[in-house]
Design a protein around this nucleic acid. Sequence first.
DNA 1: GCGACAG
DNA 2: ATCTTGTCGC
Length: 232
Amino acid sequence: MRTWPRTPEEALATQEVLRSRLISAPGPAEIDTVAGLDVAYDGDRLGAAVVVLDYADLSVRDTAVVLGRPAFPYVPGLFAFREVPALLEALEKLTVRPDVLICDGHGVAHPRRFGLAAHLGVLTDLPAFGVGKTRLVGEFAPVGEERGDRSPLIDAGETVGAVLRTRARVKPVFVSAGHRMDLDSACRMTLRLTPEYRLPETTRAADRACRDLLLRPSGAGRPGTLSPKGTH
DNA sequence: GCGACAG
DNA sequence: ATCTTGTCGC
């Protein structure tokens, strides 16, 4: 990954190669920590964040952020090439190795079955799945109104994900497996991570972290980093 | 030709 | 993603 695709054609070729390394398997039997990943934008800059939470009580175990630039223009279906470099950089700064990656986007609920969650899963070889806020591909029957109700997301005749209601009477989310992960485990984890809000606590924590980074690129607040003189 | 199209 | 007012509810 020292080189990076510069055109949609190159990105498609890279996607095809990486896709061959995608592993379809049950999720981890034991889960201690889960990581949420997200990116925020500000003009031509971006802030990426990874926040590791304790799966038992959802407390924060570790946080890593990185400032960067989009690595590719936004093209539906090639979205991962835009954020992956910065997210990998943030993952490398973690001191805690998460058991599962939870991405803000789709896993195999993608035109070529290789969305952001699948992409990051393959590159790190960590179990991963995606929780998207809107649909990319697939059709689905209306979802029940209660929390936990779900409807299969079907594309080209195959089930690629689930439309899951995480809060009663609130717009559902799109869950799909990424790497070393099965759909039922992904849905079960998503429900456990949404005790109060529509989106997983992992996503919410990462969203806050990367937005905060864009507002204060100084690094103040992290242990071991001194605030610039005059800040106080 | 007219939509649809993760973030 | 981001741009944005008012409005409903706890």
